[in-house]
Nucleic acid binder design. Structure first.
Lengths: 257, 257
DNA sequence: TTCCTTTTGTGTACGCTGTATCGATCGGAT
DNA sequence: ATCCGATCGATACAGCGTACACAAAAGGAA
């Protein structure tokens, strides 16, 4: 597990400003640049991020509590506040921590790169299903790892004769599709584990009364036909790929690339 | 403002079971089928939904509190619990209430229908920006209004020689794109109104220190080029349409329809 | 009218959350 | 030896969702 926060070069022109580590008004990433000169500390942004990610992976996002985190770290409830300004900061730290694990292959064509972006993000979200359940403000988080992903994707679209707006638009479209699709899947997963359901069949049994009530109204014949005859209801990979391939096809066609 | 909850026909075979209205174990929509025989009541699911939607529209989703809702209705904090089993139920009620306002034109081709689905959902989310910020469990909510939207979309894809899995896969892909794209836009909106920013320029000024810090690392040349030369950074409509049209193009091409 | 039952809204309280504030403690330069 | 800033601990507070028991009000039967 390599060091996430120190691999970013300190930009030139930054003074060594004393007390920088506790200047809570500066952006999170700027503060982390000089995490702390103290040698004794038991806490660190990395330790905090790892502990939080471990808890969220094991018990879901709703288990992430400042108190729980502190307990996990063997520390007083308010201790982590020395490193993160609040829960939002903590979530941002977690996001950056897991996105750092994403490795996009370089040297591929634009389509392969975008495909890898989508599949890689999906895999990250399958491994950490809380990633697709983050609160809105965290979805914007401009963390170093996410910037790196964006940069790689934009680079893959460079040199094709596209204007910057279109390049960013395509990147964001693919990302929007992935986020939307995984947000749905992830919500289903959360519901299933919360109700201790371990298969699509068990899920449908659980939902049967509700579905049956809807169907008895007779308002949804096409939906009902789907329910009765569909064969891939549990094949999420297939569903994800269907939409992704359509989107990539469309990008290729519409932009002549 | 027409009645949202009584337009669904009572399915045959439902007993008039006494106390049905307070049987909290039945699905929300089944309970609402017999909302209450009493004439005196000051509360009703409709009044609750309308009050909650009004608050969320005006002050955002985080203003939605059981206590705040009760205050708004001029009632004790626990009173709404007679009609909704908890906050999740309340959110579901709100979702159904606003989705009931969506009108999809019929009699169009599949592409126009899916386009209308996407644009209509987008407009709903622009009018009620909390819609794109709902917690995960509410994203699944199988409410009557949302079932109706799904049914219409599936119907538009019927008769084209597609198997049910593909029909549902396409519907879900378009929906995923819309949810993902609007979830991002909505988060930006929330951030802007929370910081009292009223234009893209003000937003960029606010984020300038963070962005500048990232850029000074020199790791994001393509991103930087985008920042400096892009001309449509604030044209969300264009961005949304770009991805949507690509997706629809791809669907048409890949499925030969 | 009177009584009884069922429905509907009230009052109070509990455990949990995020986090502000202040005091104790420790490490290392002076 | 002294000081000082960086850490961490203890306490406290307002606000949240909601469980629970009770009061008020309406409808039906007598």
């Amino acid at each position: 597990m390599y060091d996430v926060y120190f691999r970013y070069v300190v930009p030139a022109g930054e003074e060594k400003g004393d007390g920088m580590a506790t200047d809570r008004s500066a952006p999170l990433w700027e503060r982390l640049e000089r995490p702390a000169p103290a040698p004794r500390q038991t806490l660190s942004p990395q330790r905090i991020a790892m502990a939080a990610v471990a808890v969220a992976d094991a018990e879901g996002l709703e288990a992430i509590t400042m108190r729980r985190l502190a307990t996990e770290l063997g520390v007083a409830p308010m201790a982590p506040y020395r490193y993160v300004s609040g829960k939002d900061d903590l979530l941002e730290l977690m996001v950056d921590h897991v996105y750092a694990g994403m490795r996009l292959p370089g040297g591929l064509g634009w389509r392969e790169s975008l495909h890898a972006l989508a599949v890689g993000t999906r895999e990250l979200m399958l491994e950490h299903r809380w990633l697709a359940q983050l609160p809105p403000q965290t979805k914007l988080a401009l963390t170093p790892s996410r910037m790196a992903v964006a940069e790689q994707s934009l680079t893959a679209l460079d040199g094709l004769g596209l204007d910057p707006d279109t390049m960013m638009g395509i990147f964001r479209s693919v990302d929007a599709y992935v986020q939307g699709a995984m947000s749905y899947d992830s919500a289903v997963d959360a519901f299933m584990s919360e109700q201790s359901l371990s298969s699509g069949d068990e899920l449908r049994t659980e939902l049967a009364p509700l579905i049956a009530w809807h169907m008895r109204t007779g308002h949804y014949p096409t939906y009902q036909h789907y329910l009765r005859t569909a064969a891939r209801k549990d094949d999420r990979q297939w569903q994800f790929d269907l939409g992704l391939n359509c989107l990539l096809d469309g990008i290729a066609a519409r932009l002549n690339i």
